[in-house]
Structures are given as structure tokens and as C-alpha cells.
Simulated assay, not measured.
Amino acid sequence: MMSLFRLGVGAAIASAASLGAVIAWPIGLPPPQLSELEGDVDRGAYLARASGCIACHSDFKQGGVPLAGGVELETPFGALYSPNLTTDPKEGIGDWTVEDFALAVRQGVSPEGSPYYPAFPYPFYINFTDQEIVDLWAAFQTVPANDTPSRPPEMMFPFDQRWGMKLWRAAFLEPPRTDPVAEKDAVWNRGRQLVEGAAHCAACHTGRNLAGARKSDTEHFLGNANLPGGDKAPAIDVVTLRERGWTVESLAYAMRSGIMPDGDVFGGGMGEVVSYGTGFLTDADRTAIATYLMDDHDGG
């Protein structure tokens, strides 16, 4: 009996030690020193539009101001709320450094070293260059401070234990598919860079497993019927798009106007994507996105 007791105590100690190790496990690589690079506000604002920052971090439905956060995201694990990204030093990111910003955007790690929930699409931003980061940073520095408090997540146990995201990252974090493909032309590769990176189309248009990770190998762009809040995202693979009458021209036009080939208009989340994001892109970039999506490829 005493041996069993000792074994039980030993197992408990080992489990506690393992848990402690996970909690203390540092994540993220130190970002490079970026303060000597000069950011371009216009380029940064454009990239912020392409990346969906306005739509996700502006609670316009509740009378919120741009980038002050508060947009609710209902998930099977609980509710998340987009944080304040204005220059307010207490409620926003006014006391961050550009290196803090780089760590958050490219690695999904807070200035304190905590992992962000993957509702923040940092996995798509990993390949942002140093110059793109400082351009974004320069643009965010022009946002007026607003003291709207960032609302903390309301996640169920054990998902409220943020250290658990370290295990999630180890199991499911994947790099974006933005590397250029040599046999494709510049327009196609620009579309790939935007679709698979900044615009993070797969975040909504790809199914997810029980852990909330994308099924990239089997359901890339095949749609998602279980988006947060009960919304749905249709398939945008080339076969489906062609079957539904889309062309490069009509898809590029829809990203500017919100009008689909049948005369109907985008609603819900995609309507916001157009209103606050793709509607501000250049014709060339919208054409690049459409070219990539309408081409025969596996997204790999």
C-alpha cells in the first residue's frame, strides 16, 4: 500500500512538474531591432486594409470607433473580443514598441510573452517582411487614441488557460503558403501572397477540426459551415467558383463592389471584407487575387 502511495505521489509530482514546465515554456523568437527602419504610412495603411484589421477591430455595429476593438467572436470554446489597437497607452498599444508589434503580428505572442488565441490570424502574417511590419506600425501610430477597454476573453475551462495555446501551437501551427512558385507569373504569385497571407482567406473558407485548427491538407478553400456566430463561408476552390459562374473579371469586380455574378450582393462577414478591406485595394491586386483563386492549383 505504501508503495502504491509513493507511486501516486511521484506521478502527481511529475505531472505538476510537467505542467509547470509548459506554463514556463517560453515561446516566440526575439524580434529583430526595427527602430532604425523608416515606415511608410500609406503602405502600412494599405496592408492593414488588405489584412482585415479595420473589419475585425472596429465595432461599428455598436457605435464603436475604428480600431478600438470590441467585436465579439463566438467560438465553440467561448467568446473572444477583438482588442483595442489605437494609440491609447493603457487600453490600446500606445506603450508598445515596434518590436512588441512585430512579435505580436508575426508570432502571435504578447509583449509579456503570452500566446494569443489563434482567432488572431497571425499564422497568415508570419512571412511579413521587416519593412512591412514597420510600415504597418507607422500607420497604426496615426490612429487617434481611444480609451475603450479591451474586453477579456470569456472562454470555457480549460480553454481559458492561455498557456494551453502553447500546446496548440506545437501541434497545429503551420506556415503560410506565400512563397512564390517559379513556374507561375508575377500576377499569380502576387495573388498567392495576398490570398494565403495578408487577406487570410483560408481562415474562414477552410474547415476546422475539433481543436479549432484548419484542415489545410483536406479542406483548403472548401468552405466552412460552422463559422463563429453561426455564419457560413462558401467554398472558393476553383472548381466550385467555375461551377457557380465566376470568372477572373467578375470575382475582381465583386471584391470592389460586393456584387456577385447573379446580381445579388455579399452579406455578413464578406460584405464587411469588401467594405473595409478589398474595396480599398488596387485593381491590380484584386485581379491578382482573382487570378490565383480561379487557377487550377491545390493551394500548396
Score class of each variant (00 low, 15 high):
93 I>C: 04
268 G>Q: 08
217 D>K: 15
134 V>R: 00
224 N>H: 08
56 C>N: 03
92 G>K: 00
283 D>I: 12
184 K>E: 14
66 P>S: 10
91 E>K: 13
105 V>W: 02
60 F>Q: 03
248 V>S: 00
129 T>M: 08
226 N>K: 15
135 D>S: 04
76 P>F: 10
296 D>V: 13
208 R>C: 09
210 L>N: 13
45 A>N: 06
124 F>R: 02
102 A>M: 07
273 V>W: 01
151 R>I: 13
46 Y>S: 09
124 F>I: 02
122 Y>N: 08
97 T>Q: 02
285 D>E: 15
67 L>D: 00
243 E>F: 09
31 P>S: 05
36 E>R: 13
136 L>N: 03
256 R>W: 11
238 V>M: 09
74 E>N: 11
215 K>T: 14
160 D>R: 14
188 W>S: 04
250 S>T: 14
236 I>K: 01
104 A>V: 04
137 W>C: 00
159 F>N: 06
75 T>K: 07
49 R>W: 11
113 G>V: 04
189 N>T: 11
32 P>V: 13
295 D>N: 12
59 D>Q: 02
230 G>Y: 03
71 V>S: 00
67 L>Y: 03
175 P>E: 15
56 C>G: 03
223 G>P: 05
152 P>R: 10
245 G>Y: 12
3 S>A: 15
112 E>V: 12
210 L>I: 14
149 P>R: 03
39 G>L: 04
169 R>I: 01
294 M>N: 09
138 A>E: 02
281 L>V: 05
198 A>S: 12
139 A>S: 11
33 Q>T: 15
114 S>Y: 09
190 R>I: 05
89 P>K: 12
171 A>G: 06
95 D>P: 04
108 G>K: 03
180 P>M: 10
196 E>Y: 03
11 A>N: 10
295 D>T: 15
198 A>G: 07
176 P>F: 02
49 R>N: 12
188 W>R: 06
288 A>E: 01
254 A>W: 05
12 A>W: 09
181 V>K: 07
127 N>W: 03
199 A>M: 11
221 F>A: 06
106 R>K: 15
285 D>V: 05
168 W>M: 08
94 G>S: 05
105 V>S: 01
149 P>W: 03
258 G>K: 02
243 E>C: 10
35 S>P: 02
88 D>F: 03
164 G>S: 15
259 I>F: 06
233 A>W: 00
221 F>I: 06
26 P>A: 03
225 A>Q: 14
207 G>M: 11
230 G>S: 13
192 R>V: 07
159 F>E: 05
241 L>S: 08
45 A>L: 13
20 G>A: 11
3 S>Y: 14
33 Q>C: 10
196 E>A: 09
15 S>K: 11
207 G>D: 15
85 L>E: 00
15 S>D: 10
287 T>Y: 08
34 L>F: 10
212 G>M: 07
293 L>N: 06
210 L>K: 13
65 V>W: 02
83 P>D: 01
183 E>K: 09
279 G>L: 06
121 P>I: 04
29 L>R: 15
